[in-house]
């Protein structure tokens, strides 16, 4: 599956730097580190809950840098008025997790 990831390299760099600034442990950010960042978007908590569901692809309660990029992508799109999908469209699944 060589479909390009919808997260563009420039955007990925921005998301990666936010990821690093949050102090990941072992390459992972726990929910309590990511939660305040997402709350900062002022989006409704039920929307953020769905963003988390869609981003935490392995359901381990933590986000690695690719999962975090998916979360940030969805938050930014939601802030632009795009609805958060009910399930993750294939182009949004990080190439590393297909």
């Amino acid at each position: 599956n060589d479909m390009p990831w919808v997260v563009k390299p420039e955007e990925k760099m921005k998301f990666d730097s936010i990821f690093e600034s949050l102090g990941p442990a072992g390459g992972m950010l726990t929910g309590d580190k990511v939660k305040p960042v997402l709350l900062n978007s002022k989006l409704p908590v039920d929307i953020l809950g769905r963003v988390w569901e869609l981003s935490d692809l392995d359901r381990d309660g933590m986000l690695d840098r690719d999962e975090f990029s998916v979360a940030m992508y969805l938050v930014y799109r939601a802030l632009e008025g795009e609805p958060v999908p009910m399930s993750l469209p294939p182009p949004l699944v990080p190439p590393s997790k297909r």
């Binding site: 726990t30 929910g31 309590d32 990511v34 939660k35 997402l38 908590v45 039920d46 953020l48 809950g49 988390w52 569901e53 935490d56 359901r59 381990d60 309660g61």
Partner: peptide, 13 residues
């Protein structure tokens, strides 16, 4: 790690 009630891994639930 998550509040009581939680088998959930979602910090927003």
């Amino acid at each position: 790690q998550y509040p009581a009630g939680g088998s959930s891994t979602n910090p927003f639930l």
